[in-house]
Amino acid sequence: MPDPTVELFERLGRRAHDPMLEYVRGTVRFDLATDAEILYWLVTIDDGDLRVTREEADADCVVHSTKARFDRIAIGSESAMAMLLRAEVVAHGDIQLLVLLERLLPGPPGAKGPRLAKGAR
Rank of each mutant, 00 (worst) to 15 (best):
2 P>H: 07
5 T>F: 02
5 T>P: 01
5 T>W: 01
6 V>Y: 04
7 E>G: 03
8 L>S: 09
9 F>E: 08
9 F>Q: 11
10 E>S: 13
11 R>H: 07
11 R>V: 01
13 G>L: 00
17 H>M: 04
17 H>L: 09
18 D>R: 05
20 M>N: 05
20 M>S: 15
22 E>M: 07
23 Y>P: 00
24 V>A: 03
24 V>L: 08
24 V>M: 06
25 R>Y: 01
25 R>P: 00
26 G>L: 06
27 T>Q: 14
28 V>G: 02
32 L>T: 10
32 L>H: 06
33 A>H: 08
33 A>M: 10
34 T>C: 08
41 W>E: 12
41 W>L: 11
42 L>K: 11
42 L>S: 10
42 L>F: 02
43 V>T: 10
44 T>A: 15
47 D>L: 11
47 D>C: 07
48 G>A: 10
49 D>G: 02
50 L>I: 15
50 L>G: 06
55 E>T: 15
55 E>G: 12
58 D>M: 09
59 A>I: 04
62 V>E: 09
73 I>Q: 05
74 A>C: 06
75 I>Y: 05
77 S>M: 04
79 S>Q: 07
80 A>Q: 04
84 L>F: 13
84 L>M: 12
85 L>K: 15
86 R>T: 13
88 E>V: 05
89 V>W: 01
90 V>R: 14
91 A>C: 07
91 A>K: 05
91 A>L: 06
93 G>H: 04
93 G>Y: 00
93 G>S: 06
96 Q>E: 15
96 Q>Y: 00
98 L>R: 04
99 V>S: 05
99 V>Q: 09
101 L>R: 05
102 E>D: 15
102 E>L: 02
102 E>W: 01
103 R>S: 14
104 L>E: 08
104 L>C: 11
104 L>H: 08
109 P>C: 11
112 K>S: 14
114 P>F: 08
115 R>K: 11
115 R>Y: 13
117 A>P: 00
118 K>Y: 07
119 G>D: 10
119 G>R: 12
121 R>P: 00
